[in-house]
């Protein structure tokens, strides 16, 4: 999530807010200049929003930080989760939301 907002894991609340604004400006549907990319922009926008919602809430952020620590060498389940997460950020364009996974699974990708 820190990658999504392009901030360091040590970033303070103000920094996170500013970073969210920067990313929101970049991925806002109104900022989309290429036909056909609206879906991708919407996807990135929602993920940015989700990251902001977690990182701007002290409780949720602590929990997320803890899960990051665990995935660096802890239980296999959270590790897998972390891996999936990383893969999804690397693949980027292939949205990882539930809806897009479902559509991909059923060959409805063109909808995205």
């Amino acid at each position: 999530m820190y990658e999504l907002l392009s901030v360091a894991e040590t970033a303070g609340p103000e920094e996170i807010k500013a970073a969210y604004r920067r990313q929101a400006r970049r991925w806002h549907p109104d900022a989309c200049r290429t036909a056909g990319d609206e879906g991708y922009f919407a996807e990135r926008f929602m993920r940015t929003r989700e990251a902001y919602e977690v990182l701007s809430d002290p409780g949720l952020r602590r929990e997320y930080d803890r899960s990051l620590l665990r995935s660096d060498g802890g239980e296999w389940e959270t590790q897998l989760e972390g891996l999936l997460w990383r893969r999804s950020t690397a693949v980027g364009r292939r949205g990882t939301s539930w809806g897009s996974r479902m559509r991909r699974a059923h060959g409805l990708e063109s909808c995205d």
């Binding site: 549907p29 109104d30 879906g39 922009f41 919407a42 539930w98 809806g99 479902m102 559509r103």
Partner: peptide, 18 residues
């Protein structure tokens, strides 16, 4: 049973379920 709701930038509502 999974139910997903999606509103796009044009405010179109879609519901996916299965």
């Amino acid at each position: 049973i999974s139910v997903c709701m999606d509103i796009d930038a044009a405010n179109t509502l879609r519901v996916f379920a299965g």
